[in-house]
């Protein structure tokens, strides 16, 4: 019964990510949106080592000029909707 977690806060709000991670199960997915996409930068990505499924919203990544993000799968709006339907519930961390 996996859960989709969306996170829209960046590294200056570490407790938001911390609380999100504390509730995540192994088969859950973390979708980084808005400022949350900064966690996918090489300098931060290691804090997400324990998360097996990470996605980032393409528009928010491109908007912030983060064109070089490697290793994080990007999803567009259709992909976002798809993720919502593939999970039993969505929890929003903001």
């Amino acid at each position: 019964m996996p859960t989709l977690h969306t996170l829209n806060r960046g590294p200056s709000h570490a407790s938001c990510l911390e609380e999100c991670l504390s509730t995540m199960a192994n088969d859950d997915t973390l979708l980084l949106i808005e400022d949350g996409v900064y966690w996918a930068l090489p300098s931060h990505i290691s804090v997400l080592n324990d998360v097996s499924h990470i996605r980032a919203l393409k528009a928010d990544v491109l908007a912030r000029g983060l064109h070089q993000l490697s290793g994080t799968e990007l999803v567009d709006d259709d992909g976002f909707v798809g993720l919502c339907t593939q999970h039993d519930r969505v929890v929003s961390w903001f």
């Binding site: 859960t3 504390s22 509730t23 995540m24 199960a25 192994n26 859950d28 039993d88 519930r89 929890v91």
Partner: peptide, 17 residues
Amino acid sequence: NAEQLPALIAEHDIVIT
């Protein structure tokens, strides 16, 4: 325990933060 949190989420239909 913090370890119980993922299971707690899974046992609810709607989660509001």
